[in-house]
Each structure stands twice: as structure tokens, then as C-alpha cells.
Design a protein around this nucleic acid. Structure first.
Lengths: 222, 222
DNA sequence: TGAAAAAAACATGCATGCTTGTTTTCGCCT
DNA sequence: AGGCGAAAACAAGCATGCATGTTTTTTTCA
């Protein structure tokens, strides 16, 4: 997706009638848009961001390219929508994970790890790396990434009473977790890490987190 | 670089006369080839692999596109040469680091970390991620990556008497280091990690490595 | 019937490999 | 020794393919 620097114009959104009742067409339109966004994400995962072209996305969605551009104006608009969708997916998954009653460190680590195994992470990493050399993409991605990071850390901190009053240690543990787990995930993606070493790494991370908090230290580690 | 699936033909290498003495032409040719390879790597770092086109590389090298294709047949041959060059750079850097007399854990961690800060790592990561969706690239990259990994681990194991007889622990420490440091480097690249958190992370890694080896445990950690 | 959705047709730009042309260097041979 | 032919280094142009956005036509449905 070349992400041509075009003026972002008329965001051809679904417009219901004045009374707000969704018409048949507006429903179908929203549904088609969703199908296109999903197709875009699938393409990014399967072919990589660089090879995610408009004809491919359209064909993946089972639509003509013309129909696709009817809904999205240009490729950039579609990518932007896909990013927002991915972001919201991430937030939803985080909320779901936070709702789990069990706040054991090991469970948390494994939950986060499972998140990174999903296709969404691949797509995000593809986009994040592409953004390095594509300012246009960076401008879209950066604020969302910051928002997620802030919300994630804040919520997590509030969720764990064991860390109260040790914000620095907690932040360190969070950064450590993100770094290790994402490093592991990227390593798997690029083949520099073998599948068999994943579990030992998770155990090591868990152990390290416990070591950072005296209140957790006495609990057994795997 | 589209990496068209073309038959790899005549690897137009530099051929000296039978007596092996380098002629003026062969020297200049080798030099030009090196300039092209360097230009390719620079382009990958600056524009990303996907935006590394043959005209860009040629212009970066200060040559015409025709001249470039005279030396490299097609884009793929150039990329392949660039990968090999990067691989050898990595091996050389590793050898240099191993020659340092001081085998302190902290020094080693920082030395490895400094390696990952160099442009070569960016290029390698770009290529590794592109290889995920580009089998052609993967076939080139994979064996070199395996060779480096094996050589790296073997040499490092021989270099540290403190770990003798604890191969499993040692391998774990190596994987941990690679995962953490590469995760950190990628995090910096994609903006998901702040510069300020790097040093604390390195300290944490160092501490964890010491914890894995009783012989190192008594030494002070930062 | 008329507006939105979908499809098709169109025009442009760029990257790729290939081919042709020009200059420089090398080996050889009288 | 010196010039001649071959080959390599370099440059430029050509044709193809594909991705992009724009415009026009057809279909669908309230």
C-alpha cells in the first residue's frame, strides 16, 4: 500500500437518516466496510504491509476495487481505519484480560503472551516497522500507541495492590514484560528464536517480576 | 526491491588473470561492487526494504542504473550480496568483541547492546521481517542466521569457563540476552520503548544472567 | 424512479529487466 | 614499443507490468 500523500477528503461514513434509525443500506454499508477492514488486516498479516495492495485487499474481501474505493476514498483511508480497528481490538482484549479474577503473575504473563501470538500483533508490528520510514503512517500510529501504553499501565497499576507505592518498580516490571514478550514474539516471527525456548523464557520473566516485588517474592516460582 | 523470481544467472564476479595478480579493472570493479552493496544497505536503513528500489540504490551509489545491473544482473543478486556482507560484518564484530580481554558480564551486555544500535541491525531486522512474507529472501537469510547463531553460541561457550558443564543454563542465558536486547532494540525502533528505560533494562538483564550462574552470583550487580 | 452500491474502464506514474550504445582498460602481436 | 582488437565498465533508452486514483457505467433496492 503506497500510502500516497493525498488530501484526506470526505470520510464517506455511513449516514443514517435524521432520526438515527439505521436503514438497510447503512447497515449493509457498515458491514461491507468491516469486511474490507478485516481483509486489509488479513492481507497485512499474510503478505506484509508492503505487499498489501488495493487489488489484493479488494479481492480478499470479495469485492471489486471500484467498490472498495467507493467506501474508502483511497488506500490510506483504509489503512487508517484498519489501524484504528486493531487499536480497539487491543483495548478490548486488554479489558477482557483485566476482568479475569485471577491476578497471579504467571497467569498474567501467559495471557499477555497469548495476545502476542494472535495475528493482530503481526499486523501491528508490520505497521510499526513500516512507520519508521513512513512519516504519514507514524502520525496515525503514534498517538494510538501512546494512548494504549498509558491506559494499559494506569489500569494495570490500579489493578495490583501489591505494587502500590512502588510505582518505579512497577513501571520497570511493565517495561521488562513488554520488552521480553515482544522480543520473544518478534524472534519467533523472524526465526531467531526457537519455539522450544518460549516456555523457559516466560518462566524466567515471571521469576524476575517476582524478584522486583518483595510482596510477591515468597510465592513459589515455576 | 521487488525481488523478481528470476533465474540467478552468471554471477559476474571479478576475475583476475591466471596468475592471481589483481589488475586495475578487477580492483575497480570490486570497489564499485562494494560501493553498490553499501548503498543498498544504506537505502534499506533509510527507506526501508520495501522502498529500496534499484534507481534509488544506483543514485545513492552515484552510478547509473545500467551500470549497476552490469555488476549485479538483477536486484535480487544485489540484495543477496548485501545480506552476505551484513552477515560477515556481524561475524567480524563478534570476533572483535570476543578479543576484548575483559569478560565481565556487564561489559558483554553493553558490547552486544552497542552492536544492536548500529545501522546493520536495522537493516537485518528489515530483511528478516520482509523474509516472513518473501520465501525467496528467507531461503537466503535462514542459513546465514543459523550459522551465525551456532558459531556465536559455540564460541561464547568456549570463552566463559564459569559456565563449563552447565550448557543448559548457558544456552538459557544466551537466549535471554538475545531476546531482551533485540526486543529492546526493536522497541526503540518502533517507539514502543523510551530511551530512558534502556539502562535499567540492561542492568536487569545483567542481574538475571548472574542469577543463572552460581559462580557469578557473588559478584556485585549494579 | 432515483439514489446508493458495485463494477468496469481509464489514465498516470514508477519499478523492473532488457537492449543498445559509448568509453575505458587490458592483453597481445607484429 | 606501440597500436589493435576484445572485453569490461558505464550510460541511456525501451517495453512491460502493476499499483494508484479518477471517472463512468451498470446494478440493486427502497
Amino acid at each position: 500500500m503506497a500510502l500516497a500523500t493525498t488530501r484526506s477528503s470526505t470520510p464517506r461514513a455511513v449516514r443514517d437518516p435524521a432520526d438515527g434509525s439505521p436503514t438497510h443500506q447503512s447497515l449493509k454499508s457498515a458491514q461491507t466496510r468491516a469486511r474490507l477492514i478485516d481483509a486489509a488486516i488479513r492481507c497485512i498479516v499474510r503478505f506484509g504491509y508492503a505487499n498489501t495492495t488495493t487489488p489484493r485487499v479488494a479481492s480478499e474481501a470479495g469485492l471489486s476495487r471500484g467498490a472498495m474505493l467507493h467506501h474508502f476514498e483511497n488506500g490510506q483511508a483504509l489503512i487508517k481505519a484498519a489501524i484504528v480497528e486493531l487499536h480497539e481490538k487491543r483495548l478490548r482484549a486488554f479489558r477482557r484480560a483485566a476482568d479475569v479474577g485471577d491476578h497471579d503473575v504467571g497467569t498474567l504473563v501467559h495471557t499477555y503472551w497469548r495476545q502476542l501470538q494472535k495475528p493482530g500483533f503481526i499486523a501491528f508490528h508490520e505497521l510499526a516497522l513500516a512507520a519508521r520510514t513512513h512519516p504519514e503512517l507514524g502520525r496515525i500510529l503514534q498517538p494510538l500507541q501512546a494512548e494504549f501504553s498509558a491506559r494499559f499501565n494506569e489500569q494495570a497499576y490500579a489493578l495490583f495492590p501489591e505494587w502500590q507505592g512502588q510505582r518505579d518498580q512497577f513501571d520497570l516490571a511493565m517495561t521488562l514484560s513488554q520488552t521480553m514478550l515482544e522480543g520473544l514474539a518478534v524472534g519467533l516471527l523472524t526465526g531467531s528464536v526457537k519455539e522450544a525456548t518460549v516456555e523457559p523464557m516466560l518462566a524466567l520473566l515471571e521469576q524476575q517480576i517476582r524478584a522486583l516485588n518483595p510482596a510477591l517474592a515468597q510465592q513459589a516460582s515455576a
